[in-house]
Design a protein around this nucleic acid. Sequence first.
DNA 1: CCCATCGCTGAGCAAGCGCTTAGGGAGCGC
DNA 2: GCGCTCCCTAAGCGCTTGCTCAGCGATGGG
Lengths: 205, 205
Amino acid sequence: MDAAEPTEGAAWDEVTPDAARRLLIAAVEAFAEQGYHATTTRDIAGRAGMSPAALYIHYKTKEELLHRISRLGHEKAVRILQAAADAEGSAAERLARAVRSFVVWHAEHHTTARVVQYELDALGPEHRAEVVDLRRQCDAAVRRILLDGVRDGEFDVPDVPGTTLAVMSLCIDVARWFNAAGRRTPDEVGVLYADLVNRMVRSGA
Amino acid sequence: MDAAEPTEGAAWDEVTPDAARRLLIAAVEAFAEQGYHATTTRDIAGRAGMSPAALYIHYKTKEELLHRISRLGHEKAVRILQAAADAEGSAAERLARAVRSFVVWHAEHHTTARVVQYELDALGPEHRAEVVDLRRQCDAAVRRILLDGVRDGEFDVPDVPGTTLAVMSLCIDVARWFNAAGRRTPDEVGVLYADLVNRMVRSGA
DNA sequence: CCCATCGCTGAGCAAGCGCTTAGGGAGCGC
DNA sequence: GCGCTCCCTAAGCGCTTGCTCAGCGATGGG
């Protein structure tokens, strides 16, 4: 389907210089494993092979690290969903693409996704507001597909906002339970979930 | 202050003495708002109107508080799902009841549910193992309903374990996004979700 | 009226936290 | 060689954390 998903390392290409990227990747792993509040700056620096003080050359605070991770992750999510919503094809095809690529991203980058989706409350007020706005754009993209499908008679969806919520919720929760060592590949989960969501909205019964 | 949630107080009836219950309810609120690691023992004791030291008369450690909350919550979840699985009626009726009551519980007690579902990793190894076992019982109850429905030709479910996972995931994530001040009541969400899940598994299209 | 018991508090300890500061060493133009 | 810049470290500051402990006031049996 769409262009190959970048790998874990390549996803942070835009973060420079090298030391800042290494710290950020270390922070993602630590936050995903233990949560933001349980992670110490010493732990992050240690994973990146640096002394505790090195962190503060590249980031003002620990919270700024989380903010950078959260913003980059949400921007990626918005891009994935808007690409699907803007694509050619029937509403069913666009919805399937949206769910599949969104789920694959959550499964493949489940460490990043876990931080992005579950550490939102650890952000400061203005940083959180910025990220909440990006989430609204995610919702809007999915809702647009559903509304198109209802308008064209493709879908039977009595409660569009509620179903949008449920679809997003289903995809996001993948980050919580997905385990790379488990028996399902990200793509298998994506295909399964696209089918389940299609069943939720298809008309006729 | 919690008059809006009539069952909230009654849910912790079994916790005695009174001071221990007040501390536990304070801990649920604090953990749900800020997360386990961001909550201090001083905060919990303060919410219960006590000094920091009072906590350690009733609980050995902060982790024991989380364990008690998590265990009681999971036991309730198991009871809800097994009651639905064991009920009379068609598989569709039992599935609808399971989803509806499970979702209503997550919405009504979303503070408790948030702690129960998202602070699992903060438990010590042996306490976590105990709780993970209870979660397997939850999964098993839902899977049993799906298998019955497939056997009787009521459901069309190509991937029973995967669909079980998705149904549980959908219900659990309610605890993350549900807001008591929002425009949906717990019962409305329960009815909506029961319908969406029914559409996932119904045969014919 | 006394004193043991229970539930609790005030004060504080050792450890660990986020973050700062002074300074070292490699690479560069001149 | 010299000085300048850029990354980085060792040491540590001020503060908060989970948890402890000696002791206090209220209660109730004798």
